[in-house]
């Protein structure tokens, strides 16, 4: 009889201690992003799990010394913060405080890739791509956010803030020139969860992957371009392979035509030999024809750039020139 109660007590104690151990939440945990991750957008959402008993405030500091303070309250367990990124490696520190004393410190390295700059196009091998929208992560978010897609196919939101995507992703459309499907939050028209030949590795990892090449999706609205381009003789490689988003930011951009940079910077990102040296004819004054920095007479109110003479997509003229005769090309600006 006695030995029986003794055993029971031991069992109880072990169970109790186990439950304590399991139930004890970490003082501070960065749920997203994971260490050494890659971001394709210039914003990353930090999701922090904090226990109000051991932490009363969390400070996120970027390597450009931007700091964000999050007050921890006992009603919530998870906190989100959007952090701006610069190209290349970003080292971001997350520090938990209790009465101004450091409780725990974590850091995350996030690499922002660029589709244009070769420098930032290929991140070092230690980095891995973030796949956020999977069942596991969404379960965590669902306590505060509605994680369902509430978009009606083919009908844009009257009030865009009603979109469930808007809350977390609103920053992608904040630039001057907004692409209609993006600024109207018709996200799933491109983020259809499918993959293309260039991003097979994304398959089944996230609900909202975009096929690469994206061309067919673009052409579903830009029908006329597809028609006209197919008739032309010469094609620019990125346009021909349907990778429109190499040059265009399909959400929003500071530059015209939703270009990722101004046209001149964008072109010279790949065609580096054209930055300096003798491009276009050398005139009597020993100066080459300008390629930037002056007004473009052929496009009122715009500045001269590569696209003044070259068609960035297709052309019937060699070198993708805008006109097939020398006279026709020059006379676009030099009228009489």
């Amino acid at each position: 009889m006695k030995s029986c109660t003794y055993k029971k007590i031991i069992l109880f104690i072990t169970l109790f201690s186990l439950s304590l151990f399991a139930g004890q939440t970490a003082a501070l945990k960065v749920v997203n992003p994971s260490q050494a991750s890659i971001s394709e957008e210039n914003i990353v959402s930090f999701v922090v799990e904090a226990d109000s008993a051991s932490v009363d405030s969390v400070v996120i500091t970027t390597d450009t010394n931007e700091a964000f303070n999050i007050e921890i309250n006992p009603k919530r367990s998870h906190y989100c913060k959007s952090i701006n990124l610069h190209f290349g490696q970003n080292s971001i520190k997350v520090v938990g405080y209790k009465k101004n004393a450091v409780v725990k410190e974590e850091s995350r390295d996030v690499f922002l890739t660029s589709k244009v700059d070769k420098e930032y196009r290929y991140p070092p091998q230690k980095y891995n791509k973030i796949y956020f929208h999977n069942e596991e992560n969404e379960k965590i978010c669902a306590s505060c956010h509605d994680m369902k897609v509430n978009e009606v196919q083919g009908i844009a939101f009257e009030d865009i803030t009603k979109s469930n995507c808007y809350g977390c992703h609103k920053n992608v459309t904040k630039e001057k020139h907004g692409h209609a499907p993006a600024v109207n939050w018709l996200c799933t028209s491109c983020h259809n969860g499918k993959v293309g030949i260039y991003n097979q590795t994304d398959k089944d990892k996230t609900k909202y992957s975009v096929p690469d090449p994206i061309g067919e999706i673009c052409f579903s609205c830009h029908k006329k371009n597809k028609e006209e381009w197919s008739k032309k003789q010469f094609h620019h490689e990125p346009a021909d392979s349907g990778r429109c988003n190499k040059c265009h930011n399909s959400h929003s951009s500071q530059s015209e035509f939703y270009l990722r940079k101004s046209a001149w910077e964008l072109c010279t990102g790949c065609h580096k030999d054209k930055i300096e040296g003798m491009h276009v004819v050398k005139t009597f004054g020993q100066k080459p024809h300008p390629t930037y920095g002056v007004k473009d007479p052929s496009r009122a109110g715009k500045e001269l750039s590569c696209i003044s003479c070259h068609n960035p997509h297709v052309s019937n003229a060699p070198s993708l020139l805008q006109s097939s005769t020398v006279f026709g090309l020059c006379s676009r600006c030099h009228k009489k």
Binding site: I155, A156, E158, A180, N184, S189, C221, K223
Partner: peptide, 9 residues
């Protein structure tokens, strides 16, 4: 516009 309805607001 191309089969998508956009509000004019």
């Amino acid at each position: 516009f191309n089969g998508v309805k956009f509000p004019l607001r």
